[in-house]
Structure formats: structure tokens, C-alpha cells
Design a protein around this nucleic acid. Sequence first.
DNA 1: CGTTAGATTGACCGTCCTCAAGAAGTGTGG
DNA 2: CCACACTTCTTGAGGACGGTCAATCTAACG
Lengths: 240, 240
Amino acid sequence: MPCEQCPLRGMSGFRDFTDQELRFVSSFKRGELVAEAGSTILSEGAHSPHLYTVLSGWAFRFKTLPDGRRQILNYLLPGDLLGLQGSIMGEMEHSVEALTTVVLCVFQRDKLDSLFEGYPGLGFDVTWLAAREERMLDEHLLSVGRRTAVERAAYLLAFLHSRAEALGKISYKSLHIPVTQQHVADTLGLSIVHTNKTLRKLAERGLIQWLDRSCEIVDAEGLRALADWEKPKERKRPLI
Amino acid sequence: MPCEQCPLRGMSGFRDFTDQELRFVSSFKRGELVAEAGSTILSEGAHSPHLYTVLSGWAFRFKTLPDGRRQILNYLLPGDLLGLQGSIMGEMEHSVEALTTVVLCVFQRDKLDSLFEGYPGLGFDVTWLAAREERMLDEHLLSVGRRTAVERAAYLLAFLHSRAEALGKISYKSLHIPVTQQHVADTLGLSIVHTNKTLRKLAERGLIQWLDRSCEIVDAEGLRALADWEKPKERKRPLI
DNA sequence: CGTTAGATTGACCGTCCTCAAGAAGTGTGG
DNA sequence: CCACACTTCTTGAGGACGGTCAATCTAACG
């Protein structure tokens, strides 16, 4: 049974809930939160009492060094869980900021225990999402550690394209990635100047087109080939 | 009640099992596996039918690009879970290699469902461990993306020291980290030559001492200061 | 119409890489 | 016991990749 309460209902490949689970998820919910583009959703060090699911929009997780250097860790798209680390470890170790207007579904953190107790299927789903996040971080780390600037940029854009595409049929009309070159730089571990020159090379090759504050993917296959990266096969995934 | 079957029993800060859980974990177990230093425990692409816990020794997780460039993602120490990604996503996306002789506790993958169903506390623990791994990867990514070579090396060694120390009272006599400079290079995303020169600087500052195939931490506090990194407060942690 | 954020470009410089060679330690076989 | 291969660590030289500084351009916005 598709989740009636959820704007994501009917998304292909997503998990359906049983009636029982549906009732629980419903009681677990505490409403919605809307974050404007550029606003901070969660801050490092916060003891947030909530757990969130992204319903729509783009956001990103990041950490900063004391002197201000920033590293973007991953991007959040509809269906992604947010604040699990804070819920489980007690304190957020990273911050989250909205790239576009983001709508979040708010859950009560203290009900997480009863989720595991009463609804093992949902508990497994949370773990599934955590394992998926880990897999993405593994890939980012490989990229930042071992790829050249051009390869890194190609990988990142192919990766984001692939994620958006998996949701795209219903949530997005065009696959424009809503980031500035500063975001790309902070994701790749490069300076903004070098990032600009690198993106320019990709544009000259006809792989992308840079628009104002966003990137249009022209040739996703070409980007993947350049980065020597394979798109993960999207299979049925859970959704809380 | 401490886990009687487990060599790690009695380790301070570790979770105790209830009688019921203990019986389940016992039935979950399929025996032990010993891997020699340098041997591959799991390979990328493998559909491993098992899930493992490290009982003793050091190992590391890594990914490689098609042309051979290697990135070490994280290190595995006693108490760490191994193969969860494979269990949940179906296929391993990284490889695991032993640094020293490693003893693993082997679990049946297909019992993972019944773990979540019958033992929510244990299910929660698995998620706890996944969230912890994610936190470590976040830190590594920040380091590789935004720290300088010297800072990166200092962070890595302080990090490994901190992890070993948390287990050290009982498992290790000395805190020698069993890696070659090639391992350090592949973790930091640097060449072996530059890694050598960087480690040399740390040694000249009296922070470490490089021995044959291992590193002795002389001044952990100094390393942390150099990397501007804070040791995570170790709290009670679960263990499966 | 000035202000601001983002994108762009050139010049110069430093970090880090590659190539190359050698030293020291370990294991193997003759 | 020695010769040889192999791995790990070390060091120097030259060059490429990417960083910093600085100036310019554009579009959006009040």
C-alpha cells in the first residue's frame, strides 16, 4: 500500500507500507518544515530532537574546519533521511543547508526506539538508507582522493544527474542541478578558480552547460566515461 | 550480561546482551575465520553470503579505479562490522584486506531479517554501527578534501591512535599502527614519495616515529593540535 | 542605478607528482 | 653462507597540477 500521507507516494521503485506501518509512520510524524534556499536546516553540534525525510527540494551536508575551510559531504534529495546521526549518536557532527526550497517531513526522535521495536521492516529500511549513504561516501572519497580535477567534476555531475534522474520522472521537469561553482569546488576539494576552469573544459567538450547558479547535463554518458564511473543500478528502495 | 562467546567480552564501554539476545547471537554465528596479513577478506563485486565482526587484528576497506589507483576508505578494528553493505545492497562495492592476522566472527547473512524482527535492540545496534561508520567517513572526506598534506597525515595518525587507544587497554600492548607508507599514501590521497616526506616532517617535530611497517605515536596530543581535530568522546557502544 | 553574488580570466607561485636511483631489511634457493 | 630478488623506505631533480591574488564582467535586486 502506498503511503497516502506522503507526497512521494507512487514513486516507482519505492517501498510500500503495510497498514500497520502506515499507522505508525503517521503517528511518528510531527508535521512538515519548509526551509528556504540558502538557509541552514541543521548545525554541527546541535542536539536536534528530530529526524527528517526530504519531501522535495535539494540540500547538502557539510563540515567545516575551524578556520572556515568547507567540505560538502553529500547531497540530499527527496526520500533521503536527515538527522539520523544526531538521533543515534546524540549530536550532529555536520551541518545541513538548503540549495532550493526544501520541504521536510519531521519525525519525533524519541519514537525511533519504538520504530525498531514494533516495526522491524521500517527499522531495516533505516539501516538500508544508512548503508546506501555509506556507499555514496565511499565513492566520493575515492573520487576526491584519487581522481584528477576533470575526472572529479565529471564524476560529481554524473552522480548528481543519476540521482536526480532516478527521481526525475515525477519530481523534476528538467535536470538542472541547482548549485553554484562554489558548491562544486567545496565538494571536489578544489579552489573556486580551478573549479571554474575545470567546468569550462567540460563545457567546451560539450558535456555540460553552465547556467546561472545551475548546471545542465548535456551528455551524461560522456561524463560517466570521462570519470570511468558506472551508474549504480537503481533497485527497489525503501522510503520512510 | 556480557557476551560469553565473544573474545571481546568485558571490554569497557561495550554493550551487554540480554539472555535472549545472547541465544540468538549464538545461533546467528557460523564460526570463525582467520585471515593472514595481506590477504583479501572480501572483494569488490562479491556476493558474499556472510556478515562479519572483527574479533582481533587490523584490516582496511578500499576501492580502486579501473586503472589501479587505490583509495583506502577506512580501517577495521575489533568490534567493527564488515560486509553490511553486501548484506543489504546485495553486492560489495569495496574490498577488504587484512593488515595483520585478523580473526573474524562469521554470521549468516540470511538471518539478518530475523535479527531485526526478533531483536530490535540488536537491529538498533547495527544501525548504530552504520551511523558511526558514516561519521568516520565524513571526517575522512573533510580531511582529504580540505586539509594540507601535513594536516591530513596528522589527522589520520591521531584518528587511528584514538581508535586503537579505545580498545588498547586490553587488546594491544603497544600502540604501533601496522601500516606501510603506501597504506598511508592511499588513505590520504597522496603519492608515496610525498607521503614519505610528509611523515618525515612529523617525525622531525617529534610527533611520531616510523618503524619498519608500522608507526609509533609519540605525541598524540600534538598530532591532534596540528590537524585541529578533537578526539570523539567514546561512549558506551554496541557490539554484535 | 549602485550593490551584491556569481562567473571568468590572467599571472604567478607552491604543493605535490613523476621519474630515478639507492639504502636497508627480509626471505629464498643454491 | 652467500647471492639474488623483493619489499619498504629514502632522497633529489624537474615538471605539472592546482592554489592565490587580482581584476573584470554579468545578471539580479532593491
